[in-house]
Structure formats: structure tokens, C-alpha cells
Nucleic acid binder design. Sequence first.
DNA 1: CTGAAAACTGTACCGGCGGTACAGGAGGGA
DNA 2: TCCCTCCTGTACCGCCGGTACAGTTTTCAG
Lengths: 210, 210
Amino acid sequence: MKKGAETRTRILDVAEAAVLQKGFGGTSIEELIAETGITKSGFFYHFRDKNELAKALLNRYIENDERIYDEIFSRARELTDDPLQSFLLGLKLLSELLADLPNGHPGCLVATVCYYERIFDREIQETNRNAVLAWRRRFGQMFAEIMAVYTPREPLEVDQLADMVSTVLEGGIVLSKALKEPNSLAEQILVLRSFVKLLFQPQAGATYRQ
Amino acid sequence: MKKGAETRTRILDVAEAAVLQKGFGGTSIEELIAETGITKSGFFYHFRDKNELAKALLNRYIENDERIYDEIFSRARELTDDPLQSFLLGLKLLSELLADLPNGHPGCLVATVCYYERIFDREIQETNRNAVLAWRRRFGQMFAEIMAVYTPREPLEVDQLADMVSTVLEGGIVLSKALKEPNSLAEQILVLRSFVKLLFQPQAGATYRQ
DNA sequence: CTGAAAACTGTACCGGCGGTACAGGAGGGA
DNA sequence: TCCCTCCTGTACCGCCGGTACAGTTTTCAG
């Protein structure tokens, strides 16, 4: 019971790092078992095939991702009651967290999957889609709360604003990786933060908080 | 001479579509030669190995990409002398062009490569990096011209603003693909457009163009 | 028209990889 | 003790990337 779960986790750890660097197609099972120190039979005892490995990998990644966002934005929520200030603070915390990653963001599995879609079955694609929809709900909720208090200076829809957060995250990761500039991602989030700040800034004449 | 280039192009066409759907690792040479109606020997006559195919694919993709941006933003430039209005118009045109793609954006090879990096040699990674740097120069130039006329309401750097355009494009493509909502990409570009408009909007009290 | 180069085809082969099949063993809990 | 979980070992299959190389057709310049 205990032992099996531990081995499974070790396989997933090795697989996640490999897949984010080389994609699913570029990651061989043989290389995974070599690094984990397990036999081929042992691997196939835990995962029926590569598709099941991908499924487990993606689910674990998404859960962890959600946990991180929960932590960051609930921490931000504790520090201020104002929904806008709390959201801006959350983006700041997120940016700092990403800036502190020594080798930059390792990559997003959701992006990996959607650039490899045709290989996997419907279930994985559906899981991937739901992950993005969950982000939309999460950030959409925040923007809805903000709009209950502040009037946006441009007529933008809640869902599209929410998607913008995911967009900047995914796009920032791609840029960071392609440029080999780990900082780009954190910077792009701060640019988004400035945009959001601007969008809900009270019209001139009124005072507004920094 | 002529015939060879034609076959080469046909291979690249088939390969590009396949790679954007399945990644490099998920695309087999055998499948490419089957669809192109060529033999294996014929394929290896044109490309020494998969790495060379990737190189050719990426270079062609980047060239085409640059051509499209040249067209769109020079067309926008012809319609107005104001650098801000011209940029906003360019984003609008780009958004419309992407919205008109019947099956949505097929995906960006630059993103594919950076999620598959460790497999390829330094040259490809360098090409990829230079492509993103070229985007930075292109959009940076535009923002520099805008800033010569307009004062941004938030202190943002030209390079980071320029990267934001690439970020939204790459991120929007990922979201569109993951959500299977072709429209998302075009919408995200319009959200960016609103942000840029807001950033350079004259302070309230003065009149500003719609 | 000719001849040489370009653009292929055909065949045979290699090693790595994903995957299957199945037998067997170690270790621990009921 | 017995069974269940968690593996190991061995043997094998077919696909794929890649090599090697000989031979054939197509093209086009002189």
C-alpha cells in the first residue's frame, strides 16, 4: 500500500521533469525506468500504458497547480478586504514566487498536452479543457467581486479578463522558455498587474490608493 | 531544380500540420512519406534527419510569421499617421484575421519547439530564441514610437510591453487549443488592445479619440 | 539530341522503443 | 499459513528512425 504509492510518486516525479523538457513523444519509458531504478515490468504494473501515465501526470499537475493558487490568493485575501487590492497583491505574490524559481518555470503540462493532443484520448483532452475552465471560474470570480465595487474604464467581460490571467501565464512560460530568460514570466505578470490596476483606477479627480 | 523544391515544400506542408497537432515526437517520418506519396529514401534525400526537418520547418514558419506581421502593421500604418492609432488598428486587424481562421489557429511552432527543446541541437534553440527577440524588436519599435507622442499612465518598459504582445499571442493560442474555442485567441488580443488603449489614454479632462 | 546532374525508388538491414505475456519471488498483514 | 501487493526476469513482437547503397527516372543546359 505505502510502498506502491511511493514508487508511483517517484515515477511521476521523474516523468514530469522529463515530459516538460522533451514532451511526451520525446520521453521514453526506458529512460524513466532507468532513472527511477525500476524494471519495465514494474513500470507497467503501475501504469497500463503511456496514456495512463499522461493521465496521472496531468491530474497530479492540475491538483498541485490549484493548491498553489488557493494558497497565494487566500493569503492575499487575508491581508486586505478590498477585492481589487487583494487581487493585485495576489498577482504580486505569484510574480515573486515565480521569480524565485532558480531555473525558471519548468513548463506547464496543460500546454504540453494541447500541443500533443491528437495522440491522447478524449478523457485527457477533456481534463485539460476543464483545468482551463477552472482557471476561468477562479479568476472570473475575483473579477466579478472587483466589478461589484469598481467600474472598469473599458467595457471588458469577466470571462475574457479571467482568461487573460491564464493567457499571460501560459504565454509568459513559453516566452521564458524560448528566450531562456527565467525572469520574463514574472515580469509579464507584473505588466498584467499594471493593466488591471489601470482598468479599475478611479477616474482622475478622485484619489486612488497606490 | 524546380521539382525538388516543390516536393520539399509538400513535405514541409504535411509535416507542419502534423507537428502542430502531435508535436515532433508524435509525428513519424513514415506517416509523412505516406501522406506525401514519397518513399523513405526520397525523404532522406531532402532531409538528412528529423532535426534538419525541424530546422527547415521552423525557419519557414518564422519567415511566414514575419511576413504576416509586416503586412498587417504596414497596412495599419497606411491608414493613420498616429503611432498609437496605427498600433491599435494593427491589433484589430490581427484579431480579425485570427477570428477568420475556420478551425482556429493551428498552433505556433515556436511554442512547440520550446516544449521539446532538449531533443534538438543548439542551432534550433537559438533560431527559436531569435524569433522571439525579433518580435520584441518589432513591437518594441512600435511602443517606442507611441511613447514619443503619448505618456503611459503606468511606468512600463518598452521591452516588457513588446513581450506582452508575444505573450498574449502564445498564451491565447494555448488557451484556444486547450479550450477548443477558436475565438478565444482573437478575443484575448482585443483585451490586450483595450489595455494598451487605456495605458496611453490622455488623463481625464482632456478629450480623447474613441 | 545528348549527357550529366538532380531527384528520386527499392531493398535490406540495424537498434531503440512501446507494449504484451507470463512465470515467479519477496514481504507483509489477516 | 495464505493471500495480496509489489515487484523482477525473460522472451518476444512490430513500428520507427536511420544507414547504406545500387539502380532508375526526370530535368535541363549545352
